[in-house]
């Protein structure tokens, strides 16, 4: 009995470690800031600039947190404050379901892929609400743009992430990951889906060429126009964390996440290797996102919607059709 108690307490300790330190909140926090640094640095190098120093995102965060707390007169105080917190909380929750150290995450169940997809939609909604309740015309305009562009990238993003699930026949990310590593042909079949997912993720993160909601030259800063101080810091952190989680999701679903797992004797060692593989794949996806950002300019709202409906969604349907045929022919 005593022995059992000891084992349980160790499990609780490990779970807490997973939740809060690695790969939980603190790690995600640090990795998001590092991603922002990478984003700005590579972007700068591609423009033949030197770029910001390493601790720049951290300095921005600290500075914003120490600034005066302003709530505009026209803003609705509760929603104005709640919006960034809701967005950040949804992202952090989504991160816990990703399989990072091994093929099962903290808690793996049938349908966790769909849960992560829905959790990743919430920050967009928070952005819209924050802009809408800030009581500024530019904020409301930006909020409307966020909401109206939602459908143009969300449909291809959802559909394309479901193709590996269709090939495999399970909504569980752990199953998808292990299936992909035993059947490498899936990578070739779902390559088109990966490209579509990359473009749709760029739209989801509101980065170039889809930064229409924020369009600095048109509507100042879009939904964030009235945000200052720590609320703005939370929104920026949520944006960076969303980039990490979105890229991580693509890496899990299309690039087999932490696999191939090397089984080493103390189980901790194989977890560390798994996490390193996962990080390498995530950084690869993030690098592709930065390449897209530095290569293109902003497009108009109507151009984005017609691009999504004329190209992205038909191509996604082609990808799904391929997946169904593969399944019909008896799998791979």
């Amino acid at each position: 009995m005593v022995c059992r108690k000891g084992v349980e307490s160790i499990d609780i300790l490990l779970t807490l470690l997973y939740l809060f330190i690695f790969p939980g909140f603190i790690f995600l926090f640090a990795f998001s800031l590092f991603t922002e640094y990478l984003d700005r640095k590579i972007y700068a190098r591609m423009q033949r600039r030197v770029g910001p120093p390493f601790l720049q995102p951290f300095a921005d965060l600290v500075k914003l947190s120490a600034k005066e707390d302003v709530v505009p007169e026209n803003a609705e105080r509760f929603m104005f404050t709640a919006a960034p917190i809701i967005g950040l909380a949804a992202i952090f929750a989504a991160f816990l379901y990703l399989p990072i150290v091994s093929s099962t995450g903290l808690h793996s169940f049938n349908g966790d892929l769909i849960v992560v997809l829905y959790l990743l939609t919430i920050p967009t909604l928070a952005m819209f609400l924050g802009g809408w309740y800030s009581g500024n015309v530019f904020g409301q305009k930006g909020g409307m743009r966020v909401a109206s562009l939602l459908f143009s990238y969300e449909i291809p993003f959802f559909l394309t992430l479901l193709t590996p699930a269709l090939i495999e026949g399970s909504w569980k990310m752990a199953d998808i990951v292990t299936f992909e590593i035993t059947h490498p042909l899936v990578f070739i079949i779902s390559f088109l889906g990966f490209v579509i997912g990359l473009i749709a993720l760029q739209g989801k993160l509101e980065r170039l060429p889809f930064d229409i909601p924020e369009a600095e030259t048109e509507i100042v800063a879009g939904p964030l126009v009235e945000y200052s101080g720590r609320r703005l810091a939370l929104f920026r952190l949520a944006r960076d964390a969303e980039m990490v989680v979105g890229a991580g999701l693509l890496a899990v679903v299309f690039l087999a996440g932490p696999e191939p797992i090397v089984h080493l004797e103390p189980v901790y060692l194989s977890w560390i290797v798994g996490a390193l593989v996962f990080l390498a794949k995530t950084l690869f996806v993030i690098f592709l996102l930065i390449l897209i950002k530095s290569a293109v300019a902003r497009i108009r709202t109507d151009q984005m919607i017609s691009f999504a409906y004329k190209w992205l969604i038909p191509l996604t349907l082609v990808q799904i059709f391929i997946a169904i045929i593969v399944r019909f022919l008896g799998g791979i």
Partner: peptide, 21 residues
């Protein structure tokens, strides 16, 4: 401009007075 690159010092040009220092 990129030649002087103000972002080296963390300078960003912002559109909204709420973001600016």
């Amino acid at each position: 401009i990129p030649r002087l690159d103000a972002e080296r010092f963390g300078v960003l040009l912002k559109g909204s007075p709420r973001h600016a220092d």
